[in-house]
């Protein structure tokens, strides 16, 4: 039934299996961190596991599989991987700035580290409240 999977040699099957399971496992770990971590500025780091090595592992495995089965070229996976690698930092930086401005105005000054930690503690404290 799935004859295209039987065409792959054994070493490539092992490499593809390791890459795909690593990528999806890291994505699952990032989603688990998205649920488990306490404040927003902790949680914004968690899904980048899925967008960096999660995407890279799945895309490398897919490129290897479809190159070896001879179905088509590998350019699609490279396009998706490059798109994800370039757009995720831009997205999360805009979202972090939006969260900072929603938390009450000015960005924390780097010259005074105590104000940064105080702001993060205040964010963690208000995480359980019902403020939208």
């Amino acid at each position: 039934m799935t004859s295209h999977l039987a065409q792959v040699p054994l070493w490539a099957a092992i490499v593809i299996a390791v890459l795909v399971v690593l990528g999806s496992g890291l994505t699952l770990l990032g989603a688990l961190g998205l649920v488990r971590l306490s404040s927003f500025f902790d949680r914004i780091h968690a899904p980048t596991l899925g967008t960096s090595w999660g995407t890279a592992g799945v895309m490398l495995g897919s490129a290897l599989l479809f190159t070896l089965t001879g179905d088509r070229l590998v350019i699609h996976e490279i396009v998706i991987g490059a798109l994800m690698m370039t757009t995720t930092p831009v997205t999360l930086m805009i979202l972090g700035r939006a969260a900072l401005s929603r938390n009450g105005g000015a960005r924390p000054r780097a010259a005074n580290p105590a104000s940064i930690t105080a702001g993060l503690d205040a964010d963690a404290a208000e995480g359980g409240s019902d403020r939208r």
Binding site: L5, V8, A17, V20
Partner: peptide
């Protein structure tokens, strides 16, 4: 063999 590995993974 490789089909089994890939299906499980």
């Amino acid at each position: 063999m490789s089909e089994t590995i890939l299906t499980v993974a």
